[in-house]
């Protein structure tokens, strides 16, 4: 790990000001320090977000607001989250380990970087790490990597479980710029496709800081579910995951959002599944037919074609569980 300074800002202004001068924010540090130890990231100035008042979890009748520095474990265990947005709690509890969840934060989780082994080892070429150096993963060890949203330059899968859960809740992200201005964007617009610039992963502007995630309350959110498929029974990133939020009162699907993890280069919404269900009666056959549409346009690499099948089955199981 290369040497860095660590600034402890006394408030948001000081933090984003330092961020505007090229400092890197450090939240829980569970991903950034791994990357720094592997020399994938070499920040020279870190800005400690821990002193900032960004840890609140605020629940109202119509929304949930998660401070960017709220810890994964606290959000997962929050009674209102468990009751009204179960997909969030389930996705968090399926993430990492208890120790990491005690450290990792909501904002940091959304910005964690891919687990692609080529990205995380400076001994390999990688377009995301060194633009233009190539993507050996395309013909290499790509079982865990993406089948959706890939480009010829990058097939790295997005690693966050939480982000998949949050996009089916149509969450938004509060941002603060170094000049003090704030804006709110849908979470679905935070992450970018790799295209020909895989090193540009988000729509964040220079120095911009995530301050909170806002989640609207909904009937669908209350009947939401997260399913994670993995080789190891725990403490592993998703091979495939599926998040579902559904409102199907009186046997008709009124509201449906479906997304998948482990398959996309960013958290992947599945509108094709949603459209096949919205307004239709909730029957085993409609669920199965809709799930069968998941992952359209997939472009598997050499080892991960099975993810197409697995994705459809995971989506179906998540739909079945959420509506059981």
């Amino acid at each position: 790990m290369q040497s860095f300074t660590l600034a402890a800002p006394n408030g948001l202004d000081a933090a984003t000001d330092a961020g505007g001068r090229g400092g890197r924010y450090i939240a829980g540090g569970t991903d950034l320090l791994q990357l720094a130890k592997d020399n994938v990231e070499t920040p020279d100035r870190l800005i400690d977000l821990e002193p900032l008042p960004l840890t609140d979890i605020t629940v109202t009748d119509d929304s949930l607001r998660l401070g960017a520095m709220a810890r994964m474990s606290e959000v997962a265990a929050h009674p209102a989250v468990v009751a009204r947005w179960p997909v969030i709690s389930q996705a968090l509890l399926a993430s990492a380990s208890p120790q990491i969840r005690n450290m990792g934060t909501i904002g940091g989780n959304l910005l964690q970087r891919t687990r692609c082994g080529y990205f995380r080892d400076t001994g390999f070429a990688c377009n995301k790490r060194v633009p233009g150096s190539g993507c050996p993963a395309r013909e290499g060890e790509n079982r865990m990597l993406a089948i959706l949203g890939t480009s010829e330059h990058c097939i790295a899968s997005h690693a966050s479980d939480l982000a998949v859960a949050l996009i089916v809740l149509e969450a938004s992200v509060d941002l603060r710029a170094p000049d003090g201005t704030t804006r709110t964007i849908p979470l679905a617009e935070l992450h970018k496709l790799p295209g020909d610039t895989p090193h540009v992963e988000t729509t964040l502007r220079p120095g911009e800081l995530i301050t909170a995630v806002a989640v609207p309350a909904s009937r669908a959110g209350m009947r939401s579910h997260y399913l994670k498929v993995r080789d190891r029974a725990s403490f592993e990133f998703a091979l495939v995951s599926a998040a579902v939020a559904i409102d199907a009162g009186a046997g008709t699907v009124h509201d449906i959002r479906v997304a998948a993890g482990g398959v996309g280069t960013k958290p992947w919404r599945l509108p094709e599944v949603e459209e096949a269900l919205r307004g239709h009666p909730l029957t085993p056959k409609t669920l199965a037919d809709a799930a069968a549409l998941a992952g359209q346009g997939a472009t598997p690499a050499t080892q991960n074609g099975f993810k197409q099948v697995l994705l459809r089955r995971a989506v179906l199981r998540a739909l079945q569980t959420a509506t059981a």
Partner: peptide, 10 residues
């Protein structure tokens, strides 16, 4: 997992 091109462990 060994990268076939480089013989490097992934």
């Amino acid at each position: 997992h060994v990268d076939g091109e480089t013989g490097r462990i992934v």
